[in-house]
Write a protein that binds this DNA or RNA. Structure first.
Lengths: 206, 206, 206, 206
DNA sequence: GATGAATGAGGGTTCATTCAT
DNA sequence: AATGAATGAACCCTCATTCAT
């Protein structure tokens, strides 16, 4: 009947709708089966449990975005190490990172919606926090660099760093969860960059 | 047996622990009864349903913090209207509001934890969003004032306002949810105020 | 506060509404108490249990209507025994009985509604059947008389008698349960009498 | 284990006994499971809820009897329209209908018992009334015919028609609920026909 | 690849009633 | 005459998952 892996795809599609609509916990495996026109046995042939089903919708994207952030952190590291780097270059790079992040997010809209707002109860319920942690390393690097340049009169506490990472992460995440289009989001990303830069300058002032 | 209304208190205490540990949805009425050494009937004598039990832990605080914000917004309105008001006065007031908010939050730590992170599924699941909305009105008022003074070359979009309200609200909320002590939080609140002010200045620049 | 027996009256009134609306089984003692502004303890001071509460609304009427029927049966007995009784007299008496029944029913509308349609689960759930049984005795007497006069060529089976008692009883009961006014009901009672008489004549025919 | 769909049958059988004994509302799903030697989950695999279980015992019969009545009404319509139809033919047809009804009822005894006396609380609680309504249409048709033939000196009120439909329906229904055998019931059906015809003649008299 | 019957613990909630005060 | 806290069994139903076929 040409079913082959078609069943799997159908299950994934239906599951995505259910998870998006109800969230991980309230979504029902039985209802997913029913809507996909498939028996529970079939579902459990393809996916070992509820979490595995959710992961199948989300894993690839979750892994890749983390890699993207890590890569960016590494790349920034080299920029900082370059003696000839100007402040403008750093800012420009930050803006570019924002654009990349937003673009990737929007290219994988559904997966990000699941990860950011519908994963409660699943093994991805801490995805957002993990993102923040990665962002934090990014920011810490920046701070170290700044401190070298400007001296350490202004002590920035660890918590502050964590909070700023939150600020940045959630600012980007909200673009998607609040329903902006990609075009709107890219424009807004610039505003975010501007605002956060202004904030930094203020707290770094002596 | 010295029970009197002691049972109700015991139920509330146990329920608070359960909700804090598991969240509204995963908390079990039966488990709460068992831990409180009480039959289900007793619980349902005091509280009409699960949501009512949750509300009993949270309603007062939820109502009051909203009033506090509203009152502050009104007070700020009068400050803006005063011709002799200086920018310093406005900033000082913002800082004071932050202190008030944080202090009240910490004085009602458990209730705020429930409201901010454990209310999903209950009638308070939108509490955080409501807070943001109130904050937004606050910020909008500020923007109107600024626009009058500095002209309107820089158009701030509605979404930006909403985002900033989020930024501020979550910044305060996280102080609690991340486990800072009151002393740490109050210090951090100043950092937040500084940072957010810097951000504002940046995006208001021509 | 002048409460005295006022509480009892209030409970009875509220209970009547509840039973009428929901029926005996679905009515809730707690809700009755709440609506009456009284605690359960108070209710159980006046009425020993749910059935007792229902009975208090209904007993008097239930007893009296039975007596009325019995009395009528006895009175009819004497009519039959009277050698000078004409068939017209018998029919006239039957019509009068109908009128009495209907009038009494309407004078105690609520109680009859409870007894006829809302008593399921209570000790009065067989009230209607008891009424039928009493009616049946009435009808049997009539049959005996008829048989003496006209001979016994037409055998009327016991079940037929029971059925006819049902017919008559339900015909009257429905006047009330279908919402006719007293005036309409009295008119309709004549139609019933006519119809039932016609039926009798038909099955008594040789 | 030879279970196959045997479980479903066993559940239906047990449920039928429970419903017959206790009625829809007082019957307990748990008890039905226990008696059938099955877990609640199994029951809910076959039937979506209590009402669905009841319906499975009753739906087919409920639908068919209504169709039978409707069909008969249509057939009677053609009889009336036939110029050569004699009053005897009409009466004969009425009697035949009675026989058909009773025969079908007894062929589905349990289902009818459930529908007529045990359905309270289920979606079939108005089944009897629906039957009466169908019967009423039947009777109205008859009245229209009669009126054409005999003139309209005797006004029969709408309520009277409704009442007569009740009379007829309950007369048939009681044959079953009062425990008559099929043979007894068929004989009694003739008595009913006779009686009701006599009643009609009486109220149609000028 | 897929079926579908079955598990069994658990969910929140309602109930009539009791009894010490 | 009345309070109101407390009982505890029972209610219908949902869940993710398993496994013989």
């Amino acid at each position: 009947m040409g079913n082959e892996t078609e069943t799997r795809e159908r299950l994934l599609e239906v599951a995505k709708q259910e998870f998006l609509e109800l969230g991980y916990e309230k979504a029902s495996m039985r209802k997913i089966c029913k809507k996909a026109g498939v028996t529970t046995g079939a579902l459990y042939f393809f996916f070992k449990d509820k979490n595995d089903l959710f992961a199948a919708l989300v894993k690839e994207v979750a892994d890749e975005i983390k890699m993207i952030i890590v890569h960016h952190t590494q790349k920034e590291q080299t920029i900082y190490e370059d003696a000839k780097t100007t402040p403008q270059a750093i800012i420009a790079d930050g803006i570019e990172q924002g654009r990349d992040f937003v673009t990737y997010m929007y290219a994988n809209k559904d997966a990000f919606m699941l990860l950011l707002t519908k994963a409660n109860g699943s093994s991805y319920e801490n995805f957002y926090d993990e993102l923040v942690d990665l962002m934090e390393k990014n920011t810490l690097q920046f701070l170290d660099h700044i401190t070298l340049e400007y001296g350490k009169e202004n002590e920035i506490k660890p918590y502050t760093m964590h909070w700023l990472a939150h600020l940045e992460t959630s600012s980007f995440a909200q673009l998607l969860t609040h329903g902006l289009t990609l075009e709107e989001a890219l424009i807004q990303a610039e505003v975010i960059a501007k605002y956060l830069t202004g904030g930094w300058l203020e707290i770094l002032k002596k």
